[in-house]
Every structure is written in C-alpha cells, then in structure tokens.
Amino acid sequence: MPTPKKKPSSVRTSLRIEPPTLEEAIYAAQGLTDNIDDQVEIAARLMGLSEVDVRAAILKVAITKPRISIRPPAQARFAAGRQPVVVERRASRILIR
C-alpha cells in the first residue's frame, strides 16, 4: 500500500470567507420560514446589512416571483398490462410466554 504524502509545514493555506449575495440570503430565508419579518431578520444577519435594505429587496422579490411548491403532487403511474403493487404494513407479532 502506498504511503500518503505529507505536505511540507512551510506551505501556507489560505481560507477565504465570502458572505452570501443578497439573492442567496433571501432564498435561504424563504426556505426557512414563510413569515416576512423572520425572513428579513435571517437575511439581514446573513448579509450583515440593515433590516430596512433587506426588507425592500424581499418585498420586491415576493411581488415579482410568487412562491411555488418545490415538489409537484404525486401521480400514480401504471404500466400498460401490469397490476399495481400494494404494500401493506402488518402489525408485529407479540409472543406471550
């Protein structure tokens, strides 16, 4: 088995932390809650902006894009000539001694 290579200790690694964009923060806040006030607070804290600026952007996004459900309703699909499979859960057996 080959031995893993070690990095020399003199190699510098840098870590870059970028705050999310305003659109990303609003999208994340909308995913967490439906309440506009809570969305404003969450997005403002993620961005480090004032709540007044974020509220205007959230209200603008809410007007232009109505929120739709992520998952479409389930539809039954049946192959032609095949019977559907029904799975039922049975109650567990209780052993009495």
Rank of each mutant, 00 (worst) to 15 (best):
A57V: 01
R45P: 00
G48P: 02
V52S: 07
K65M: 04
E51Q: 15
S92T: 10
G81R: 07
I17P: 01
R90E: 10
L32V: 13
A29Y: 03
R12F: 06
Q39N: 05
A91H: 06
L32D: 10
K5T: 14
R90S: 13
E51L: 05
V11A: 08
E88R: 12
R55P: 03
A76N: 03
I36W: 00
A91Q: 09
I58T: 07
M47Q: 06
P73H: 02
G31T: 08
A25Q: 04
A43W: 02
Q83F: 08
I36T: 13
I26W: 02
M1H: 13
E18M: 04
S69A: 12
Y27Q: 10
V61S: 03
Q75R: 12
T64Q: 14
I96E: 15
A62V: 12
S10E: 13
P2L: 14
A25M: 03
K6P: 04
T13F: 09
A44Q: 01
R67D: 10
Q75S: 09
R82W: 06
D34N: 11
R67H: 05
A79T: 10
I94N: 11
K60P: 00
T3I: 14
T21M: 00
P66R: 07
A28E: 06
K7F: 14
R90N: 11
I70K: 10
V86A: 12
E18L: 04
L49H: 08
M47F: 01
R12Y: 05
A79I: 09
E41G: 02
E88F: 05
S10K: 08
A56Q: 11
A29P: 02
V40L: 01
A43I: 02
V52L: 05
E24F: 01
P66T: 07
T21D: 03
Q83W: 04
T13P: 00
Q39I: 04
D34W: 04
A76C: 07
R71C: 07
D38Q: 09
A29D: 06
P72E: 07
G31H: 10
R97L: 11
A44T: 00
K60V: 08
L49M: 11
I63G: 05
S9Q: 13
K60A: 15
V87R: 14
A56N: 09
P8M: 08
T13W: 07
V86T: 09
A43G: 01
G81H: 06
Q30Y: 06
A56E: 14
K6V: 15
M47K: 14
G81V: 06
I26V: 15
E88Q: 10
R77Q: 10
A44Y: 00
K6E: 15
P66C: 00
T3Y: 12
K5C: 10
K65F: 06
G48I: 03
P72W: 01
R67S: 08
Q75D: 04
N35M: 01
I68M: 07
